[in-house]
Design a protein around this nucleic acid. Structure first.
Lengths: 130, 130, 130, 130
DNA sequence: GTGGTCTAGACCACC
DNA sequence: GTGGTCTAGACCACA
């Protein structure tokens, strides 16, 4: 669980933490039931305000990705999306369209984009849904 | 050129306008050299402050997607990315990874995601780079 | 005397005309005493509002670069700067600094910039001051 | 970080701020990672509307010269140009030509211009690209 | 009439 | 307290 904060990024710090946790879970670097670093510990490592970490954890919990047990810490939760299938599709399609539009404007070819997509997919092969 | 503003969205209004213009260009609903609605006109239609439209147009210009000429209006520019190929790839890969991660957490299957990707790509077939 | 108007440029059209006339004189494409195209003629060629051409010519005259004789047209004037030497130096230094600053931020090397400067200078070799 | 605003100049105020920041960075008066004055602070000093400062900072960020982080402030970013080399050359050559043309019309000699160029270059010696 | 600049003042997300 | 977003309204340069 090593997080890199990019201070030159526009992405808010608390979002970068959320991103990193989600990514590490999706890549199976942290597994179901494992314990995350404590707020203070992570705040110390990253030299960041503890409130910022706490905010990230809070949001990860409302998204159902981790469960925090007061007194013992935060743990990776089981994956189960509480959103309906149709809504999930709508969200993902929207994101895919945004990428496609950007790619068009960057003059990226159909083939390149498709290839890059395949490369990325491969990395997460093991953790996709059934 | 019909734009829908969603005031309940977190996405800033000026961004929604940028998104819509980019999308309409990528879908060839507006073509090279065509004139966009004037700032004041669009502001009237969408019941939005003209400065907000102006901001969107300004950013579209700095991105090289439109060219604005005081006194004449704003026009769709030729597509050609100033960004170096490697940087472009980095940007797109990053976006693709974000989607893949989200998909994993939503328990979407590899096959579904790939299929949706193909569907989206098809819509923009004509306007991709060479 | 062939002027190319770049509609995708931010530079105002009347300025582009001024630039082009100055450039053609500096490159000796038009010489001392030669007649410039009439306002209407140029407006027709470039498909531009005659007022825009007139504005450019007006400014060229106040800068002492051309002289307009009502009824006969506009002619290239003799070069003689009415600005004092110290002021001229200040203006040019300021412009040179702006370039240097931009070059630094574009990560252009000292040597490259110097070489490009030499290339440009060579083009105008014949028309520099004594 | 001392900025002089010239209200009688044609150059927009926000541009003068951009110019000043770029200059101070190029002259190493502010260095990598250092914090710029806050929007409100600078607005107070220069007796200027905060939005004008914000606009300058926003553009400096899109140019990649500073990075702003809501909640923390604005900081000098690492220098690295996203623009492709050929485009950079085109931009600089264009600027150099403009100077050469102006110099010709001001009856400045080849030698003088070259010498002034050398003087200016020397000031920025340390910060040019590799 | 077109977009660009600037001011003034409100509200919000981030840290 | 930091910058970001949005509104409202004035004035200017450009065509």
């Amino acid at each position: 669980m090593q997080i890199q904060i990019d201070n030159s990024s526009n992405r808010p710090v608390y979002q970068q933490i959320i991103d990193a946790v989600k990514r590490d879970i999706a890549l199976e670097r942290i597994k179901l039931g494992e314990k995350l670093p404590t707020v203070r510990q992570l705040a110390g490592e990253l030299v960041i305000n503890p409130n910022t970490i706490a905010k990230a954890y809070r949001q990860l919990e409302t998204e159902g990705i981790i469960t925090t047990r007061p007194g013992s810490g935060a743990f990776v939760a089981e994956m189960n999306s509480n959103i309906s299938k149709s809504v999930r599709k709508k969200i993902v399609i929207q994101e895919l369209e945004r990428i496609a539009i950007d790619a068009v404007h960057m003059q990226i070819s159909n083939e390149e984009l498709t290839q890059w997509f395949a490369e990325v997919i491969k990395k997460f092969k093991n953790t996709f849904g059934e």
